[in-house]
Measured scan of single mutants.
Amino acid sequence: KLLSSIEQACDICRLKKLKCSKEKPKCAKCLKNNWECRYSPKTKRSPLTRAHLTEVESRLERLE
C-alpha cells in the first residue's frame, strides 16, 4: 500500500492505542462500548529543516 492511502484509526482508538477496525460511521470498538466515534483530519507533519537536523546532530555528539 502507498503511504498516502493508509487509513487512520478513529480518535479514541488512537488515543487509547487500540486496534481500530476503521469502519465508518462507527468502528467496532466504539460501537461495542457506545463511545462517540470521530475521525479527525490527518495532520500534516512539517518537513525537517536543516537547522533542526544540525541541532539534533550536535546534541547527539555531546551525549556520545
Rank of each mutant, 00 (worst) to 15 (best):
K1N: 15
K1T: 15
L2H: 14
L2K: 10
L2A: 12
L3A: 14
L3E: 15
L3W: 11
L3M: 12
L3H: 12
S4Q: 11
S4V: 12
S5H: 13
S5D: 13
S5I: 11
S5E: 10
I6A: 11
I6E: 09
I6D: 07
E7Y: 06
Q8W: 11
Q8C: 04
A9H: 06
A9C: 03
A9K: 04
A9Y: 00
C10R: 09
D11C: 04
D11S: 05
D11Y: 08
I12F: 15
I12M: 10
I12T: 11
I12N: 09
C13Y: 08
R14F: 03
L15M: 13
L15A: 12
L15D: 10
K16F: 07
K16Y: 03
K16L: 02
K17P: 01
L18I: 12
L18G: 15
K19P: 07
K19W: 04
S21L: 04
S21K: 03
K22E: 05
K22S: 04
K22M: 04
E23M: 11
E23S: 13
E23F: 09
E23K: 10
K24D: 09
K24G: 11
P25E: 04
P25T: 08
K26H: 14
K26Y: 13
K26F: 15
C27E: 00
C27N: 00
C27S: 08
C27Q: 02
A28Y: 10
A28C: 10
K29N: 04
K29H: 04
K29A: 05
C30R: 03
L31A: 15
L31H: 14
L31S: 12
L31F: 15
K32H: 09
K32F: 09
N33D: 06
N33V: 04
N34R: 11
N34V: 11
N34I: 09
N34L: 11
W35I: 14
W35V: 14
W35E: 08
W35F: 13
C37W: 01
C37K: 00
C37F: 06
C37R: 01
C37V: 03
R38M: 15
R38L: 15
R38A: 14
R38N: 15
Y39G: 03
Y39V: 08
S40H: 01
S40N: 04
S40F: 04
P41T: 04
K42W: 06
T43E: 15
T43R: 08
T43K: 05
T43C: 12
T43M: 13
P47S: 04
L48T: 06
L48I: 08
L48E: 02
L48F: 06
T49N: 01
T49I: 05
T49L: 05
T49D: 03
R50S: 09
R50T: 05
H52V: 01
H52K: 05
H52R: 08
H52N: 06
H52M: 03
L53R: 10
T54W: 08
E55V: 09
E55L: 11
E55Q: 12
E55F: 13
V56F: 02
V56R: 00
V56G: 00
V56L: 10
E57W: 07
S58W: 13
R59V: 01
R59P: 03
R59F: 03
R59E: 02
L60W: 01
E61N: 10
E61P: 01
R62G: 06
E64Q: 14
E64G: 06
E64K: 07
